[in-house]
Amino acid sequence: MDSTVRKLSNGLHPIDALDKWFSDGVQLIGQATLTAVKTVKYALAGQIDLPEVFRQANMIGVGSLYVVGVTGLFTGFAMSLQISRELAAFGADTSVGGVVAFALIREVGPITAGVMVAGRVGSAIAAEISTMMVSEQIDALEIMRVDPVQFLVVPRFLAALVMIPALSIYSMTLGLAGAIFVAQAKSNIPPDIFLDSVKQTIVGSDFVTHIVKSLINACIIIFFSCAIGLHTRGGAEEVGHATTRAVVWTMTLIFIFNYIVTALSNLHTS
């Protein structure tokens, strides 16, 4: 029995596997923190390669336009479908817009955009940087006394700080448009009634929550996928592992921090 388990988990005892998983996790959090500290230090010192920032902004923003748009739109569809039908049944047609918009802006919008950007941008960054590691390009940088954090992480970080909130707002707008369309098509709620309800419900602080969440998502995605990429050694197989790790870690952390911000913002309003 024991040997079967060992074979299944590639020769590791489950307890050892858990132990390894845990120590790897602690190590990664340390690496990501160090990367973050260095990045902020370089950024504050003004050692910024602006053309590279624009290039990265283009890659992150334009490169994610379609996937974030499509998922935002369909999230709006699905939420509006479920909420408008339930509320219309109670004769609460006039509050559909408010409930959908509230959920989209504060909760579902940032998290949907967050996981899509994690999947698209986080994995691409981890893949790119770990490929540079295994093909010794990062070693070449270090020999030329160029800090890879300054050269690679800082431009990506600054670009993400601008582009990820922008993508989030874009996803939310498309989601809202989709929601208005579905409310009209499936539950006969006219767009102006929907929008009136949105105006009555949504306050400025909802947008603040949205932006705060997407900024945190940007930090998680950049620091973790860069840290994972910069600590990968080996061959093609390891590039795959690094990319998978980046996706899993960034998504999990996005879910965790999403809750923390939700909890804190509710504490603030109540």
């Binding site: 998922t71 999947g119 698209r120 790119e128 770990s130 490929t131 795959g240 996706v247």
Partner: peptide, 19 residues
């Protein structure tokens, strides 16, 4: 392809299956 393409494949798989 090579190591680079393993990374691209992962990105594509995640993005496409989620979308």
């Amino acid at each position: 392809g090579g190591a680079e393409d393993v990374g691209h494949a992962v990105t594509r798989a995640v993005v496409w299956s989620m979308t």
